[in-house]
Amino acid sequence: MTEFVQHIVNGISLGSIYALIALGYTLVFGILQLINFAHGDVFMLGAFIGLYSSKFFGFDQNPSLGALVLIMGISMIGCAAIGYCIERLAYRPLRRAPRINVLITAVGVSLFLEFAGQLFLGADPKFFPQIYQPAGGDMGAGALKVNPLQVMVLVISLALMTALQYVVFKTRLGRAMRAVSFNHEYASLMGIPTDRVISYTFMLGSALAGAAGVLVGLIYPKIEPLMGVLPGLKAFVAAVLGGIGNVTGAVVGAITLGLAESLVVGYWAPTYRDALAFAVLIVILLIKPAGLFGTGRTEKV
């Protein structure tokens, strides 16, 4: 019984990591319908910005909550800037081009960031400094163990989800985002500066990836230039599972995926872990393409 509960706990904590990345993914996909392959790599850059800035400030020596907040802030700003550059340079010129071209460009940007990272940041895995250690040590009862950091990540994911929900549904920017996502041209006819709205969305999504990078670095303190590839793809699966563009859906989808992975690895076949995410993706797209929470959008027939 303890084993099963532990698997559930593991699954939820893994899912909350995917959720952090999936939030940014779903935002960008929601507005552009573009699989931003580079999202996972922005996440990787976020972790590296966190690494270098905490070394710069010397936080690896004296951990504190303030340090974590500051580093996360720096990483989010840095990633927002990177996200802006990517959108401005690689995606915006292709706004009217066929979708496949944008997709190929996204792949190109992703490969560029990965290999540039390998050459300039070094291919070897780096240790992410423990800039924050929650007080109280281990949590849990008896054999059941919970990492307090992961509880924190879950809380942060849920908080970010609520904040995003507020941004998307209650603010002017959110209304503009929803309009742009519905139809670019009509939105711009209505006087919405589509390009600017898309830029903001990209920056917001990339900032979330940056935050995720720092938090993942804290929990899994091994960062390397290719670390974003698989989490990026899995976060996308999570976003599709929850219904693309749906903020709550992304978190629920991510936790579902985390649970599924944890149970499959624990009880059945750990070697099929990476196949599982894609199998889930294929099944969900075939059975319910709109995702668990998505609203079906009628295609022009």
């Binding site: 996308f236 995410a277 894609f278 294929i282």
Partner: peptide, 17 residues
């Protein structure tokens, strides 16, 4: 059933599987 990006990611997933 799938178009564009969705098809792309499904075929990618298939290759990985």
């Amino acid at each position: 059933r799938l178009k564009g990006d969705y098809l792309a990611i499904v075929t990618l997933g298939f290759g990985e599987i």
